[in-house]
């Protein structure tokens, strides 16, 4: 896989999101932001990680029953995994198309479901791998490289 983080994991934390829990939506991203700030991660990297984590967290809230999230940090960057139990994605290529969405009217009225989530994650990260089994769930494997690791990878 291109542009993945590598080297020993220096920091690891796990989180859980419960599907349809709108009241706590965003709290995992907030915890990730706090952890990255405490570790003095580059501000631009935090900014990118937050876009990615919020979009993935909201996808889990909107569509999944529950989702396990792992944040790992190495010398080369951030590795985020969102592993959910949910309906899965029948056509991943279609789901990656900007503007495609299966959101309900209620989700759209709340300002979600514009079909920007997965495309935003792809644009903002250095690599995104989506694997999914219909009826079981979806896994997002995301890497965001630190600036020095990006220049080495280029």
């Amino acid at each position: 896989m291109a542009a993945s983080t590598h080297g020993p994991v220096l920091f690891r934390r796990s989180f859980k999101v419960v599907g349809s829990d709108f009241l706590n939506a965003g709290s995992v991203s907030k915890d990730i932001k706090k952890a990255l700030k405490q570790l003095n991660v580059d501000a631009e990297v935090i900014w990118r990680a937050l876009i990615v984590s919020y979009e993935a967290e909201m996808n889990a809230v909107l569509y999944a029953h529950e989702c396990d999230i792992t944040l790992e940090i190495s010398h080369s960057g951030i590795h985020l995994v969102f592993d959910d139990r949910g309906p899965g994605i029948p056509d991943i290529a279609l789901a990656m198309t900007e503007g495609f969405s299966t959101a309900t009217r209620e989700m759209r009225e709340r300002g979600f479901g514009a079909g920007l989530g997965l495309p935003n994650i792809k644009k903002t990260s250095d690599s995104l791998e989506v694997t999914s089994t219909v009826g079981k769930g979806t896994r997002l494997d995301i890497h965001i490289l630190f600036p020095q690791a990006q220049s080495k990878a280029a």
Binding site: A25, S29, G111
Partner: peptide, 16 residues
């Protein structure tokens, strides 16, 4: 500036 009124706008403002 928004016309969204539900609680999820707060997390967005806080995160950003």
């Amino acid at each position: 500036l928004t016309i969204q009124s539900h609680e999820n706008i707060i997390a967005v403002a806080s995160l950003k």
